[in-house]
Design a protein around this nucleic acid. Sequence first.
RNA 1: GGGCGAGUAGCUCAGCACGGAUAGAGCAUCAGCCUUCUAAGCUGAGGGUCAAGGGUUCAAAUCCCUUCCCGCCCGCCA
Length: 649
Amino acid sequence: MIASNPFELFRQECQLVLADALEKSLPEIKLPLISLKKTPNVDYGQLATSLCFELAKKLNQRPLDLAEHLVGAVDKSKFNLLDKVTSAGGGYINFHVNFAKFTLLTLQSIKELTSQYGFVKTDTPQKIIVEHTSVNPLHSIHIGQARNPMLGDTLARILQYRGHDVSRHYYIDDVGRQSSVVAYGYSKLGRPKPTEKPDLFVGKIYTVTSCIVEINRLKRARDKAVALHNADDLVKINKDIDDWMSIAAELKEKYPILFEVLLAKVSEDSNPEEEINRLNHAYENGQPVAKDLVREVSNLCLDGFRATMNRINVTYDSWDWESDFVWTPQVSEVMTKLKTTPYISNEKGVLQFNADQVTQTLNLKPKLGLSQNNEIPPLTLVRADGTTLYTTRDIAYTIWKFKHADKVINIIGMEQSLAQLQLKLALYAMGYNKEAENLTHFAYNLITLPGYKMSSRRGHYITLDEVLNEAIQRAYEEVSKRSPTLNEEEKHNIANFVGLGAVRYTLIDIDPSKPVVFTWERVLNFETNSAPYVQYTHARASSILRKATIKPQPPQFGLLSERIEKELVLTLAGFPDTFIEATEYLKPNMVADYVNSLADKFNTFYNAYPVLKADSQDLIDARLTLVKAIQTVMKNALNLIGVVAPEKM
RNA sequence: GGGCGAGUAGCUCAGCACGGAUAGAGCAUCAGCCUUCUAAGCUGAGGGUCAAGGGUUCAAAUCCCUUCCCGCCCGCCA
């Protein structure tokens, strides 16, 4: 017999038995399906209910008496996976599994389903767009931004395994002023061919150009303040200039030639800021020369991103350019439609969206879980000069996404929570209720460096590539130390998947809502509760299996009677539950926690009991089957989080 | 000022959606385990007013209220 979710089968049996006993002994009590909880301890059985505590008061009886009464009414002829039902503690009812049967069911199911075990399919498959990463193409992806693709890719994977039709989208924000800054610098340099990884190359141009242009702008602002005798402004401007001059000094030292050349070229323009604004307008208007230039430099940067993401097994199905929504009528159509709603106000050409009014008119606050005194600030949609803002364009993009999907999950930092809420309210305002309800902002907290926030404008950041390189280097040192007999190619191969796995694991293991301070120590952890630890454990299990032959007929599973063996079987049987929960509640870190705890238990077992040299051939067979199942499930779980499950390391 | 998120062992974090049995890991500290299947491992010890106070409940780290502290947001930036 095979079960896609063995533990669920056991749970259902317990529920039936309990419902039957309740009906017989307390027919006057009508209860909905009773939820059974896992016990804290194998000795208390595997599932328990605290039902009697609740009933005790109503029936004016002691909880323990009730529990004993109910246990007495249990019909043992209905038992299949159940071994016994007992009362315990102050009034719990504990359900004990029949381990011989349950182990057979679980291990047979894993053996049959292999790479599909655990991935219980949803009854309601949907088309889901997961938008993630979406880093602006201005400079290399830094470690602060790297939490996004790790979470996004893992979510996409688990949803896909759940049976949804998942599409991974990257939204390229190329319309902002920043894109014009880098394009301006790139064009001033004569559109050079990259001499290094293209995103790194573009990033240097961006940082240096933006610094030079900013100083130029501030100096002109200073002249103006002097002319107008505006002392307050002057103080502030001088302070800003000092700040930027110190950044300039840093950049000049890091990239002396690039800095000199760019400074000379930018100085040819009397007002570089004006040039950038002109370029920005030209691009928004879709003028061919501007299109050609901005797309060229953006694509260079994106080529670099793709290379980085390939290293960690992250891919995308669609690259969506923000500019495409501006060049086609999509953004203007949204504006036309929004203007017909009562939520738009026009002050001297500036269009504001009154988000709070939407929540009041449509009574959305309770529905969205917002408190009544949470007054949503208005959102500016259109500037005085007629151009649109980021969120305005995002509304058009979101509507487009819903033409291709039933559900949209945006992986975006929690600092954008307000903008994402306003976006959702705009959908409601336009009558896109279903879309609004199916729009999820998956928010995550920032990664900071000790003592300061990463700043791409100032060039203060650690790139994801640097982190990956360092992790691989560190893994190489470890593998050389631990396995000196391996040849160079094997060492490099192992170092690669160990280093990359470590980084992926670390970034999804922590609850996304928690802020993270980046330290090398955190990422380069190769000990318990890390990808390398789980990978090592998988390799250990593989090593045993490599040295053995597993017989086709099922062994005597009753022989697996040690406590840790029972715990292992239960953990394996619970994998489908964990997978379903992680998927339904969008909690990728549950998968990491699960696989770590499975590895923990296996290592305990490994150290305590021999497999290949167990006391009898029957026991060897039984343990080998257990090890094989553990290997399969570890591999499946690692696959969900995008980490390689190695045979050797 | 208002909103949102966080506060659990010296440090880094699970557990909280759905209240339940002695609050769990790792790091660090201390004491042990490699002539036995991979020591990136295992066993054990010490370490907690679950930020504080109140409330609901047979039962609260978990739910409610108040306060404190930290982060983020409240732009004709993205």
